[in-house]
C-alpha cells in the first residue's frame, strides 16, 4: 500500500462508522520502490491530498525525511518539493502491517502490500 492510497482510504463502509479517516498505520515491513517521477501528475494530485495525513503517515513509517510540514506556495514549479511529495506518495510502501479505524478500532490487515478491506456480515 502506497501512502497515496492510504491518503484516499477510509473505513466509512463499516456500519456505524461516520468518517473513518485517517486510518492509523501499524507497519511491520516497509519498502521504498522506484517509481517514475511525473511532476505534472504530482502537482495535480496535491490539492486532493490531505497533507497533514500524508506527513503523519510518512513520519509513523520513519520515512518523513525532509518532507515539509506544509505544502509551499507555488509548489507547481517547485521541482524539489514535488520530488519529495512523489517519494512519499508513490515510492514508500507498506508491505505488511495493519490499518486501524480511528472510530471503531477495527483492524484491517495488510499482506504483501494489499490491505484487506473485506467486512463481516454484521459490519455491512
Amino acid at each position: 500500500m502506497k501512502l497515496l492510497t492510504h491518503n484516499m482510504l477510509t473505513s466509512k463502509c463499516v456500519k456505524g462508522v461516520n468518517v473513518g479517516y485517517p486510518l492509523t498505520i501499524n507497519a511491520s515491513d516497509v519498502r521504498v520502490a522506484d517509481v517514475d517521477f511525473n511532476p505534472d501528475f504530482i502537482s495535480r494530485l496535491i490539492p486532493k491530498i490531505d497533507w497533514p495525513v500524508l506527513y503523519n503517515a510518512a513520519e509513523s513509517l520513519g520515512h518523513v525525511e525532509d518532507l515539509p510540514k506544509e505544502t509551499p506556495v507555488n509548489y507547481e514549479n517547485n521541482e524539489e518539493f514535488l520530488k519529495k511529495a512523489h517519494r512519499a506518495l508513490l515510492e514508500v510502501e507498506v508491505v505488511h502491517g495493519e490499518l486501524v479505524c480511528p472510530e471503531s478500532g477495527r483492524k484491517f490487515p495488510i499482506n504483501n502490500g494489499i490491505p484487506n478491506m473485506l467486512l463481516n456480515e454484521d459490519e455491512v
Binding site: 502506497k2 497515496l4 492510497t5 482510504l9 473505513s11 463502509c13 494489499i114 478491506m117 455491512v124
Partner: peptide
C-alpha cells in the same frame, strides 16, 4: 497499480473526490 482486497458490494472505501 496499488491493490486492495475489497468487495464492491460493500462500497468503495475512499474519501470524497479521490479519483
Amino acid at each position: 497499480g496499488d491493490l486492495l482486497l475489497a468487495d464492491m458490494g460493500e462500497g468503495c472505501p475512499f474519501k470524497a473526490g479521490a479519483f
